[in-house]
């Protein structure tokens, strides 16, 4: 995965427990930061854009909460939206079941991805082989 990230370093946007949300900022700031920094988008526009994304993912209520106050699902979706904020994003989800350990299958992951599928170009999920059955027919 590291090799993959380094070869696509300009567009990769990881979703991983190793890339946590900033704990001293609320969710909306964590996500809008990407647009503000990379595209110099104004705070107002970035916040509006992020809020729309949060609404699409059904987690608008967590916009002004900070990382420790989120459930695993909310945290995953926030991290996913943050990754999707990268322009022409190549989203890399690293061991999603490590982020939401109680999930029985990957249905929630794919549902979340489908809700914002216009915000990214590709998505790669990296997972251990022994978790293969949780993904069903979708694995390569």
């Amino acid at each position: 995965m590291q090799r993959f990230l380094s070869t696509n370093s300009t567009v990769t946007a990881p979703v991983s427990v190793d890339v946590p949300l900033l704990s001293n900022q609320d969710v909306i700031m964590n996500i809008s930061l990407i647009k503000e920094y990379h595209e110099n988008m104004s705070k107002k526009d970035a916040s509006l854009f992020v809020m729309q994304g949060l609404q699409r993912l059904g987690i608008a209520h967590v916009a002004y909460k900070r990382n420790p106050a989120l459930t695993s699902e909310e945290r995953f979706r926030a991290m996913l939206l943050r990754a999707a904020m990268v322009k022409d994003a190549l989203i890399v989800i690293d061991r999603p079941f490590k982020i939401i350990s109680h999930l029985e299958n990957a249905g929630f992951l794919f549902q979340s991805l489908s809700e914002i599928d216009d915000l990214f170009i590709h998505c790669h999920i990296f997972e251990y082989r022994w978790m293969k059955e949780k993904y069903g027919d979708l694995c390569l």
Binding site: S9, T10, A13, P14, D18, V19, P20, L21, L22, S23, N24, L33, I34, Y37, H38, R82, V86
Partner: peptide, 25 residues
């Protein structure tokens, strides 16, 4: 404290991963 905690929590690594310059940001 903020810097030290961000470093311990790997939040600085997060910023680097998203290509956000620590010095600038």
């Amino acid at each position: 404290v903020e810097m030290a905690v961000m470093k311990s929590n790997r939040e600085l690594k997060t910023l680097e991963t998203f290509r956000i310059d620590l010095m600038n940001y």
